[in-house]
Design a protein around this nucleic acid. Structure first.
Lengths: 199, 199, 199, 199
DNA sequence: CATGAATGAGGCTTCATTCAT
DNA sequence: GATGAATGAAGCCTCATTCAT
């Protein structure tokens, strides 16, 4: 019925909303969007079923908030990890590590994003488009400076995201841990060779 | 209750089974596994609801068949496209083009695979693991020959799959067409620079 | 999904649960477990189909509750009817009458028990095993005292239950009324002759 | 579509019909009338689904034939076992043993009868009514002769059937074997004391 | 005689959402 | 703010039966 999100909420209200958000993250991450039910979420949050609709318009709306929030956190984590680095390749390396650590810390949320494709395509595209934006900007700078080979920046951005995504899937999601050193080295060397001009 | 698959089926039976398979491909591709319903599929196939269970054990079982079939077709398409090529990099290029064309021709099926992650994780991993196998083998050869930089072959295989996957998503799925030349060139040049040794 | 049974339920909830229990008793009794449907039960109770699952986990679970409840009531009825009687044969007679009256008052429930054999055999055996327990205990006492002929107490207990069951079936269930006096006398005299020692 | 039962059938037809009957006995006995399906029965018989309706009008009709057939066999078995015995009590004893052996040999069929109550009540009553008939006749004779205490013969017949039924259930069905000697002795002594006049 | 494909009604169960308290 | 009872549509699946071959 309502979705006050940021608006006026009593302290008690804020607490309940947070409990629901946390429960939803867990439940969506474990069971997937469709299999997760409001009952499950409210049970996990320790509130009554009806309470859900005091804070969220619908199951989808909550899901969208989760995805958007996650995207923002990830972008923030990447920004933090690369701030102050001056070599563009150092930025990519730091980004790679930060991305994998983020996934490991937010496995549930990461799986949530991947489901977004089938829940709300618009949401899903937005997630990646925004993520790409930052990369594109820094790629363009590095290309202009001659530090990276000049190529279509968006193509390269999606290329990099694809690499990160699959390495994250293969090692962090499937094995449950960060990739072993030789994998990390192989991927970073792959990217470095691709991006930096040959003398 | 039944799932004769390849076994004895009258011609009529074969026809019905095929109609169902085609309808399922379309419906799953458009609506996703969870949102797709048996009603929808049988309606699209023009048969009664109960008929579905004459040919398939369950919604999941049909889905799994679709994914496995798709994986096999894709691997075949890649094998065909690269057969007879002698330079490893030519193989990668041909593979890239063949992959994108395959996606374009089987948009629905491609989206189906991506959902497998949430329907049957085992199935999903198998799909990529098998796809990786072929790539790993040819990478190892090229690395042994010194034609590709020596790196962890599995890491490189997932790296390449990630690239293909995201480019396919961004251009073929989202734009509905093959990537424009400068994107293709950028990606291929990216890969070539990464794989081939600097002199 | 839920089955609060005795736990916290608002007055309204209690009322609904009771309505459902009553309706189920009627419907199961009339149509049998398999033929009875949730639709039928909820319609008879005047609630929506989904409401059923607010109170009971499944059709089977409700059925089991009904059987267990009935067993307890019957044992209680028998205990009440025979309390304070000192002659063992008087106990049997009172038990016989009480049993038939119980059946007449709970015709539906009685038929429910007989179906349990095909719904949940464990449940069914438990019903009779518990019923036998009480009889066995009092038979053993009477045999020890020499008031009843010494025999295998469990065999005699099932013998008596068989008699009661069939007389109940033949007259109460089939004719819809308590057996006529000469039947009652015949059966009680049969039992008395069997149990009490000849001088 | 048809139910030729005894009418003209080719030898091949007779064979098929018999296969179906046998399969149905097994399947009904194991799964119960409702849970048993035509698919299951025809599969067990090794014929096509449609073939069922060449020989039987419906699932119910087949079931009814099975029950009637069983009743006839049991009555025959009892008649055979007691033929030529002159003392009425010897008849009862032989009947008891024959009944239990029959159950053991036809466990499936025995369970089938008990289900008839919920499939076709008329059928069920007929089964017991016919079984009672024979007993009633011989009881009346023995009572007239003074060999058995004079009582309502039908009441005594149902009393005896109840005893047999429950002892059969408790030992043959539940334990899977004939009752141990002390049970047999206890029951027979119970019956003898009940039926024969005290001096 | 026999087959097996096809049907469609109906069964159990789940679940997002509403609403009166 | 919070509750929990109630809803009804929708989903997956089963099955007795029919029918053309």
């Amino acid at each position: 019925m309502a979705d006050p999100q940021n608006s006026a909420l009593t302290a008690r209200g804020q607490r309940t909303r947070t409990k629901l958000l946390g429960a939803a993250e867990r439940v969506f991450g474990e069971m997937g969007f469709e299999r997760a039910s409001i009952v499950e979420i409210t049970k996990a949050a320790g509130v009554a079923q009806g309470t859900f609709y005091v804070y969220f318009e619908s199951k989808q709306s909550l899901f969208a908030q989760l995805v958007d929030t996650l995207g923002a956190s990830l972008r923030q984590a990447l920004a933090d990890a690369t701030a102050g680095l001056d070599s563009p390749m150092a930025v990519e390396e730091a980004g790679f590590d930060a991305f994998l650590e983020f996934i490991q810390a937010h496995r549930h949320l990461y799986k949530i994003v991947r489901q977004a494709e089938f829940v709300d395509e618009e949401l899903y595209r937005r997630y990646y488009a925004r993520l790409a934006e930052g990369t594109i900007r820094s790629l363009e700078l590095a290309m202009a400076d001659g530090e990276f080979v000049a190529r279509d920046a968006e193509a390269v951005a999606y290329t990099l995201m694809g690499i990160f995504d699959f390495i994250g899937m293969r090692w962090v999601l499937w094995e449950g841990k960060l990739p072993p050193p030789q994998v990390r080295e192989s991927v970073l060397s792959f990217i470095a060779s691709a991006l930096t001009p040959r003398t």
